[in-house]
Nucleic acid binder design. Sequence first.
RNA 1: GCCCGGAUGGCGGAAUGGUAGACGCGGCGGCCUCAAAAGCCGCUGUCCGAGAGGGCGUGCGGGUUCGACUCCCGCUCCGGGCACCA
Length: 817
Amino acid sequence: MSDAYDVQEVEARWQRRWEEEGTYQVDLDDPRPASYVLCMYPYPSGAAHQGHVRNYTFGDVLVRYRTMKGEAVLSPFGFDSFGLPAENAAIKGGSHPREYTEARIAELKASIRRLGAVYDWRREIRSHDPEYMRWNQVIFLELLKAGLAYRAEAPVNWCPGCQTVLANEQVLSDGTCERSGDVVERRNLKQWFFRITRYAEELVDALDGLDWPERVKTMQRNWIGRSEGAQFRMQVLEQPELHIDVFTTRPDTGFGMTYAVLAPEHPLVERLTTDDRRTAVNQILDQARHSSDIERLSSEGLLEKRGAFTGSHCINPFTGQPVPLYVADYVLGSYGTGAIMAVPAEDQRDYDFAKAYGLPVVRTVQPPDGFSDDAAFTGDGPHINSGFLDGLKTAEAKERAVQFLEEKEIGHRTINYRLRDWLISRQRYWGCPIPVIHCPIDGIVPVPASELPVLLPEDVDFLPTGESPLKNHEGFLNVSCPSCGGPATRETDTMDTFVDSSWYFLRFTDPFSQSAPVNLAAARRYMPVDQYIGGITHAILHLLYSRFFTRALADVGLGPAEVREPFSQLFCQGMIRLDGRAMSKSRGNIIPPGDYFDSLGADALRLFHLFAGPAVDDLDWNDQTNEIIEGCSRYLGRVWRLCTGEVVALADKGEAGGPLALRRAVHQAIARVSNAIERYAYNKAVADLMSLTNSIYDHVHAGTDEEIVDEAIKVLLELLAPMAPHLAAEAFERRYGEHVHTRAWPSADPTYLVVDEVTMVVQVNGKVRDRISVPPDISEEEATLRALSSEKVSALLGGSKPRRVISRAPNLVNIVA
RNA sequence: GCCCGGAUGGCGGAAUGGUAGACGCGGCGGCCUCAAAAGCCGCUGUCCGAGAGGGCGUGCGGGUUCGACUCCCGCUCCGGGCACCA
C-alpha cells in the first residue's frame, strides 16, 4: 500500500459505497438505540455554497460519530422547494417554476453528494411533491376543523415588491420586507391565519427547558412578548353607560393616571368625540390610517401633531377623579385593549406626551435623591400620593392595586402577549394551495379528502401583473360546491412556505406513510430531533412556527400527543462572511465549493470548515483561506503517508518517549477528540488529531515498536473518520481490511490517561521560576520540599525564610517570599 | 435606551482560578535535490542581552486571591437582538 492517493477516484467510490451499502439507512426495526440528527432543509437555490458546506459538514460529523457510537441515526434530507425565487424566475425567464426548481434541486443535491455528507436518501422530501402537498392540505383542514385556522379581515402587511402579504415575522423592524427590502404597506384584506396565539403561554414557558442557544431563546421570548399586568374598566364621565378597558403592567401607579389614551382604531373613538373636537380627532385618525408602520412607530415628528383630546373624560377608579381622554397614534389598536391609562410620572412616552399637551404630572413613586425633575421615573421606590398604596414598594403595590380592582369588580390580573396570529395566505402561485372552496350558498367549504391534493395547474402564464396566475385560471378557479353542488370558486391563496417547513421533520420519520401525514409510531421512535442544526437567521420564524405546529398537530391527533417540542437540542453555526458581509446567493458573493472538490477534494474542504474556528463563530473568507485549506490537505497527506508506510525511522532522531508514551498520546487523543465533538469544538478535535499525528511521526522516526505504532494509526483513522470520511475509510480498508465507518468509536482506557511523571511548576511570588519533574501522586509536603530545594528558588530567596508556601501538588507550588 | 455576545502573537485560534499563545497559516533556517517542487527536521509573542538569563505582555481602569485571559465593579470599542407592545 504505497500508491499515491487519488482524491477524485477515492471520494467518488466511497460516496457510491455508502449509498449502495445503505450504511446510513435506518429502519423502524433497527435494534440499535435511535437518534435523530437533522440539518435545516434548504431552499434549493442551485449549486451549494460554503454556507451549505459548513452546515452539512457539522451535521455529517455528528451522524458519523453517533453511528460509530452504536446509534441508529436518522439522517434525512430534503428541499424546501416552494417559494418566490422560482416564480420570479418564471416571470423573467419563461421557465416553469417546477422545472426551474427541480433543476436547482438536482444541482444542489449533486454538490451535497460530493461533499460526502451521508443521508438516507430514500426519505427525501420536497415540499412541492404532490404527496407532501396532500398532507399539508390535510393538516390545514384539520387545523380548520379544530379552530386553529381561520379566515378574517385584518390590516395586513402588503409587500409591493413581492406582490403578496407577509406575516408579521417577515417584516423587519424598520418596516421593510425581509426578502425584497421594499417598504411594507398596510392593507385591509380577508386572509387566512393560524391561531398561534393560543399557544403563546406554552411557547414562552417551555423555552426554559430547551437546550438551545440562550440568544435564540431570548429572541423568541422577546418576540412572544409576555407581559404581566392588569386590565380594568373605566366609566366615561359624560356617557356613564360607556366604559373603556385598559391594560397596564403598572397597576400600582394608577393614582398617577392624569389622562387616558385610545388608539385611533379604537371602536369607541367615534362616540366619545365631541363635536367641537371632531376636526382635530379626525385629523389624527386620518393621519394614522395613511401612515405606514414605520412612520407610525417612529419617534420622529412633533408629538403635538400625533394626538388629540376627544372632549370626553373617564373616571380614574383609584382617585375617583375624571381625567381627559385622548386619541394618539402611539397607542396601537392591535395590542392589549387598544387603550391605556397614561401615567406620565412613571412612563417616559406618557411623560413626553403630557409635556406636549400641558397635562399634569403626579409622581406616585418617590424617585431617589438627585433624580432629574424632567423625566419619568420607572424604577422601584416607595409609593407616594397613592392613598392606600403609600409607602409600599412596586411589587407589593401591584398586588394591592390588583386586589383593589378585583374587590371593586372592575378589573383583574391578566397577561398580554405581543405575538399575533400567523398570517399564512400568500397571493402567489408557487406554494401549496389552501384547500377550500368558496360557495355563494355554503360559504367556506373544505375540499373533500378524496379530492386532495389540490394541485397547481401547469398551464399558466407568468406575467408581471402582480396577481397570482391562479386568479385567472378558469380551470382551477371554477368548481362545483362539494356541499350543494352549485357553482363555486376555489381559494386562490397559497400557503406561506413556512407551513411546509413547520412539520417536515415529523414527516421524515416515515415519509412513506400513505395513511396520515405523520406515522405516530415512527414519530414516537425518533422525535424529538436530538440535534437540529442550522442558521441563527431562523431563530424566530421557522423555529417558532415549528414549535407551534408540533403542539397543534399533537392536539388535533396528527402528531404524538407527548411530543410537544420538535428540537431538543439546537445548534446554530456561524455565518460565512466575505468582505465583511454575509455570504449569500442573493448578495451574489458566494464561493462555490466545486473547484475545491475538483482539486483538493471534499475531505480537505470539510477539514477546513471544522478547523478554521469555533463552529458557532462567524467565519471570514479571506486571502488566508486558501492557504489554510491547503494546510488541511497537507495534513491529510501526512496521515496518508503514515498509513502507507512511507514514514520511516530516522537514524539521527532521538527518543520519543517509548511505547508507553505513544499509547498515552493515543488514549489522551481519544478522550479529547470525543469530548470536543460532544461540545461542537470541532476546531479543537482537529487540532488534537493533528497533535496525535505529530506524535506518531515522532515515534516512527524514533523507531518505536511497530505494533504500538500500528495500534496508534488504527485509532487515528477511527477518530478521523467522522471528519475526513473518505480518506479515513480508504486508508483503513487498505491497512486493516475493514470499513471504518461501521466500527465502534474507540474508548479511552483510563489507565493510559494516568502518567508517571508530571512537570510541576515552581513559582516565587506567582512567577514561574522553575519546572521540576515529579510523580503525579506526590504529596503536598514532598512537593513543597522539592520546590524549596530548587537551586533557582534558593538563589532567589537568598537564605530568607518563605512567608508562605501554597502547594497544589502535583501541578504547582507557589512560594510567597 | 434596554438585553445578550465578543476583544488573546503578523493571521485563524487554544487554555476545570494554577506553565498564556495548543493546533494551524505565514515567516526564517536546515536536510533531501544538479536544481526546483513535494516531503522531512528545527526556530518563530515582544523588548533588553553575545549568551546565560531577565523585563513586559490576553481592549482600558480598579478589586478579590498566594496566584486572574478566566471571578467581581466601572469604562471603551466591535457584533447581534429588542425597542412607542402600555
